[in-house]
């Protein structure tokens, strides 16, 4: 079996050797950046906590929302390392389960924004003319709105829920990717390999799919990493004002909202979910900065 695919693998590696070398250099630069590695570790820890939440806490049913009134408002202790909330639920379990919604809203918003923004940007940049003009003016209009306010209005119209909050935030986000991809496509369109492909009669659709899109993916992925932190922050803000996930399903922003009336006397209700948002968003911002520097060969060397 191995002998059968071996030649193909070798040929593939040979054909893509400059690309592989590039990735190897990126990987090395990344490992040298201690802050970025630490950020990645923090993110992976939170992801691990969210995915394996039911097995990591002795109170999975409380993490999902089941109250236990006789243990209301207990300060941090050995049984409840982060204390208990207004319904007697273990705050650590709530933070772990809350990570599932808070993290997925960040990722999903960026994924939707990329999925909508990238093709529009490629079309606008590749074909130009009236199509370009129409798409770009549409992004102008969407970018004219303050994003949080537009998301609030859309989510309020759709009704508060996880999915609607996600759609609302993603709708304010896609134009950035459209602009980024359009600018990249404009310069790619003039490159000789694209002209050559067109010259030998490759169809427009195939040119975009095979030659334009693969080449814009690196800047898009870099931008996406930088955006996840702010997407998580915006998602948390939405559920903080009550437009996100509805109780009993937990979410970090929602936990802060529900705990804030007890804040002065029972700070643990809001401190820990807030710390979780802060750490995750900080890690994504640091990681994004580092990846941006690493992806560009001109700044890669300066990375410590």
């Amino acid at each position: 079996m191995t002998t059968l695919i071996q030649p193909f693998l070798e040929r593939w590696a040979h054909e893509h050797r400059s690309q592989l070398e590039e990735y190897r250099l990126m990987g090395r630069a990344f490992l040298r950046d201690r802050l970025a590695v630490a950020s990645l570790v923090v993110i992976l820890l939170f992801l691990f906590g969210a995915i394996f939440a039911p097995w990591l806490t002795p109170y999975p049913e409380q993490g999902r929302g089941e109250p236990k009134m006789e243990e209301q408002f207990q300060p941090p202790s050995w049984q409840h390392p982060l204390g208990t909330d207004e319904l007697g639920r273990d705050v650590l379990a709530r933070v772990l389960f809350g990570g599932r919604t808070s993290l997925s809203i960040g990722f999903l918003v960026v994924i939707i924004a990329v999925a909508v923004g990238t093709p529009l940007g490629a079309l606008a940049g590749y074909f130009g003319g009236w199509l370009d003009e129409a798409i770009m003016r549409l992004t102008d209009i969407f970018l004219a709105f303050p994003s949080l306010l537009l998301a609030i209005a859309i989510a309020a119209a759709l009704g508060p829920s996880f999915t609607n909050a996600m759609i609302a935030v993603a709708l304010t986000w896609w134009p950035w990717y459209t602009r980024l991809v359009r600018a990249q496509t404009l310069s790619l369109r003039e490159r000789s390999f694209v002209e050559a492909a067109r010259g030998i009669g490759v169809g427009e659709g195939t040119v975009i799919l095979r030659h334009i899109l693969p080449n814009v993916m690196t800047p898009v992925l870099v931008q996406a990493t930088m955006d996840i932190g702010s997407a998580i922050l915006t998602g948390a803000a939405m559920s903080f004002i009550g437009l996100g996930v509805q109780p009993p399903t937990p979410d970090w922003g929602q936990m802060i909202n529900l705990g804030r009336i007890y804040f002065i006397s029972r700070p643990w209700l809001t401190t820990f979910p807030g710390l979780a948002i802060f750490l995750v968003s900080l890690s994504f911002n640091l990681l994004g900065d580092s990846i941006r520097d690493i992806a560009d060969p001109r700044t890669r060397r300066a990375v410590r």
Binding site: F263, T270, G274, I277, F278, L282, N285
Partner: peptide, 18 residues
């Protein structure tokens, strides 16, 4: 500079109040 763009403002407000 990095922390200030990563911190949730509503949480920072609560901390300052505390």
């Amino acid at each position: 500079a990095v922390a200030s763009v990563s911190i949730p403002t509503f949480w920072l407000g609560l901390l300052l109040q505390l």
